[in-house]
Design a binder for these strands. Sequence first.
DNA 1: GAGTTCACGATTGTAAACAATTTTTGTCAA
DNA 2: TTGACAAAAATTGTTTACAATCGTGAACTC
Lengths: 248, 248
Amino acid sequence: MNSIVEGHNLSIKTQSNDQNETSFSPESDENLIVERIYNAVMEQRLAPRTKLSEAGLCKTFGVGRMRVRRALLLLSSQGIVDLRSNRGAYVACPNKAEANDVFAARMLIEPPLVRQLAQNPNGNSLDLLTEHIALEDTARAQNERTEIIRLSGEFHTKLAQSTGNKFIARMMRELVTRTSLIVGLFGSSKNASCPDDEHTNILDAIQSQNPDLAERLLVSHLEHIQNGLDMEALQEPQNDLAAILGSN
Amino acid sequence: MNSIVEGHNLSIKTQSNDQNETSFSPESDENLIVERIYNAVMEQRLAPRTKLSEAGLCKTFGVGRMRVRRALLLLSSQGIVDLRSNRGAYVACPNKAEANDVFAARMLIEPPLVRQLAQNPNGNSLDLLTEHIALEDTARAQNERTEIIRLSGEFHTKLAQSTGNKFIARMMRELVTRTSLIVGLFGSSKNASCPDDEHTNILDAIQSQNPDLAERLLVSHLEHIQNGLDMEALQEPQNDLAAILGSN
DNA sequence: GAGTTCACGATTGTAAACAATTTTTGTCAA
DNA sequence: TTGACAAAAATTGTTTACAATCGTGAACTC
């Protein structure tokens, strides 16, 4: 039963733990659990409403119940997981209103963000973004679904990271994560989050220090994503079984 | 010893728990502990680097150690508390770099935020802001230090809340909290965070639907706050004892 | 056959005991 | 007096056991 939770989908893909961290302080190692579940959600391997049982996670990660509980609490504070009293933790399932709020928040933050990047571009960080786009391209070429999804979101996270501002990076990271959940829930056609070359164009505009263009491209990019959603889609009906079977 | 932690400064001031909540889901009641400590930090009754011992908090709130631990974990995930392995929880102590990042983040977010509010003002929420300013005035008239400090920060939080966007509200809340820590650390003169009537002017500009003016006023308001700081101030030396004695 | 009730198993919440680490205290020597 | 060392106390981290709650399924009634 439930192979996603029992370790299969969570334990693989530890390869990409090099650069994509943002905000977790190196306090202890329950951050590893958080990171793993976080990635699984980002890559849409864990569908909304999936139950994350304590026992299952304990077995999966080989840690005590305390660690798992603390990890779940952290995830819930980031809005990735819903903690229902006495009935466990479930992958968050944003509703229509929350989805709109997420996009509204991104529309508020990201335009000034790219403007700022275009105004005083930071050599180093922009190189990272160029590398990132190369990764996206190869992933698309090889048609790796989960990788494409994760990298699509991560582009925006890295955009925020390249400001060098910890707080901006963390805020964007949260918004991007929720966007991933939303696209998984309401994404209608096969357009896995981001159209092909829009990221490239945005980065180009930044590198050529054209704030107006960069902002315009970003806004329409976000609009494309939002317009690709069908807000009347599955919503509530998705129960655990369907989610799991559908994702494999 | 340490009357701040032992319940004195934390247990009073439960009067203001009506309107000022933002993001905490009503999961359980450890949020009450979080809320109390949060307020104490906001009002600068808990100085940075103050140790928050588990035993002390247990006595103060009359709850088990588990609850306290979970509350501290949540506070640390919000950057209000630093968890040092095997040596306990301390009120966060932002350094110069973090302080700059906080203001940079606010400079990025708040201008478009007030622009948006000025463009389509939301009757209801603006009334709340008007009420709030009245509160600020009376607090200033009666010279209540902690109240002034808290309300000064809360104005910005409520500004964000009045967008009706949960995510924007939460982000601002975090930034404002850290600002309060920063002002407590680096605030030089007696100017308790916010000059007197700048909030009023900003709100007026919003209500008269003048986005440009609102943005300009807000930017200079933030600059005033930042310029009122002495970045070379106490920094590290402040140890627990001094902090506690100094704040009473 | 549909719906309700009850009991059992499974899962989560809490408290207490234990282990490990840190901080303090006291002693001794230079 | 100062410094180093060691033992004791206090604090935090973890495991374990226990209590409470929830979900499931069988038995029962209508």
